[in-house]
Amino acid sequence: ELELEEVDLYRMNSQDKLGLTVCYRTDDEDDIGIYISEIDPNSIAAKDGRIREGDRIIQINGIEVQNREEAVALLTSEENKNFSLLIARP
């Protein structure tokens, strides 16, 4: 049973970094989820404190993420200042 949490992050300008590194968990081929492998200690996500390494990203801004490229594109989008992440953890 996964616990879901919605985390809203806000950046003042497009130079601010959310600070999330995303990856696949390669140990299970059936698991195509996108996971947070690293959080930059000086980033918006780290200061917010709710997202943890190992969390799975389900949605970004209401869009279900299917692959790492999509997640990276959404997280690094210059147009977005508000990010709503739906994350899951066991």
Rank of each mutant, 00 (worst) to 15 (best):
Q59C: 10
E6F: 03
D28Q: 08
N42A: 14
D28M: 06
T76Y: 08
S37P: 02
I32Q: 15
I60S: 00
I39Q: 01
E38M: 09
I39V: 13
S43K: 03
R89M: 01
Y10M: 14
V7T: 02
G54D: 06
L4V: 11
N13K: 12
Y10P: 05
L18V: 07
P90C: 04
K81F: 11
D8E: 06
L75C: 03
D40P: 06
M12Q: 10
E78T: 11
Y35N: 13
R25K: 13
Y35G: 04
K47A: 13
N67F: 05
E29D: 09
I63R: 09
E29K: 10
N61V: 00
D8L: 13
L75V: 04
I51C: 14
D40H: 13
R50V: 02
I63Y: 12
R89W: 01
A73Q: 05
L74F: 10
K17N: 08
E64W: 01
E79L: 08
E5I: 15
Y10G: 15
V72S: 11
L4S: 15
D30K: 11
E53W: 07
R11V: 04
K17G: 11
D28A: 13
D31G: 12
G19F: 00
E5S: 10
K81R: 06
A45D: 01
L18M: 02
I87F: 03
A88K: 15
I44M: 14
D40W: 11
L9K: 00
A45V: 12
A46Q: 13
P41K: 09
T26C: 04
D28G: 10
S43P: 00
G62A: 07
S77M: 08
E70G: 07
I36M: 02
I57N: 00
N82M: 04
E29P: 14
S84D: 08
L20K: 00
A45E: 01
C23I: 15
R89A: 04
I58M: 04
K81M: 10
V72L: 10
I58P: 00
D48E: 08
G49H: 09
T76A: 08
L74V: 07
T26Q: 09
E79W: 06
D40E: 12
N82D: 07
K81D: 06
L20F: 06
L75W: 03
R25N: 13
L75S: 02
G33K: 03
F83A: 10
C23G: 12
V65Q: 05
L86C: 13
D27T: 15
R50D: 02
Y35E: 13
N82W: 07
S14T: 14
S37Y: 06
N82G: 04
I58R: 14
G54L: 04
E6V: 06
Y24V: 15
L75H: 01
G49P: 14
I63S: 10
I39A: 01
R50H: 08
L4G: 05
A73H: 06
K81T: 10
K17Q: 13
E64L: 04
S37D: 15
Q15C: 07
G19H: 00
A88Y: 08
E38R: 11
N82S: 08
C23H: 15
L20W: 02
G62H: 10
R89K: 15
D16S: 10
Y24K: 03
E1K: 14
D48N: 11
A73F: 06
Y35W: 03
K47M: 13
I34Q: 03
E3A: 12
E70W: 03
L9G: 00
E29C: 08
R25E: 07
S37V: 10
A71C: 11
R89Y: 03
R50P: 00
R56D: 02
S37Q: 12
I44F: 03
V65R: 03
A45K: 00
S43A: 09
S84N: 11
R25F: 04
Q59R: 11
T26V: 11
I87D: 00
A46V: 02
C23A: 08
N42Y: 09
G19L: 01
L75P: 01
K81H: 08
E38P: 02
K47W: 05
L74W: 09
T21N: 10
R56Q: 09
P90W: 01
I57R: 00
P41N: 12
R11Y: 15
S84P: 04
I39F: 02
E69L: 14
D28L: 11
K17S: 11
N82P: 04
A88C: 03
S84E: 09
D31Y: 06
R68W: 13
K47E: 14
E6R: 13
R56H: 05
K81C: 07
I44Y: 03
L20D: 00
P41D: 12
P41L: 08
Y35Q: 15
E70S: 10
I63M: 06
P90F: 02
Y35K: 12
L85D: 00
N80S: 12
I36V: 07
I87P: 01
I34C: 14
K47S: 12
E5M: 14
G19Q: 00
L2H: 11
E1D: 15
D40I: 10
L20H: 00
D8A: 03
Q15W: 07
R52G: 04
E69Y: 05
D28Y: 09
N13G: 11
E79R: 10
D28H: 13
F83V: 07
N13C: 04
S37N: 08
A45R: 00
F83M: 04
N80V: 05
V65S: 07
F83K: 05
M12Y: 10
A46E: 15
R89S: 12
P90Q: 08
I32R: 01
R68S: 07
A88T: 06
I58G: 02
R11I: 15
N82L: 09
L74T: 06
G54E: 06
G19A: 01
L4Q: 15
V65M: 08
D30A: 04
Q66R: 10
N61I: 01
E53V: 12
K17H: 14
D28E: 05
A46Y: 08
E79S: 11
F83Y: 06
Y24C: 15
N61P: 01
I58K: 15
G49M: 05
V22F: 11
L85T: 02
G19E: 01
N82A: 07
I57H: 00
I34D: 00
D30N: 09
I36C: 08
P41F: 08
D16C: 14
D27E: 15
D55R: 01
N82E: 05
V72K: 09
D55A: 06
Q66A: 15
I32M: 02
R68I: 09
I60M: 08
L2D: 03
D55V: 03
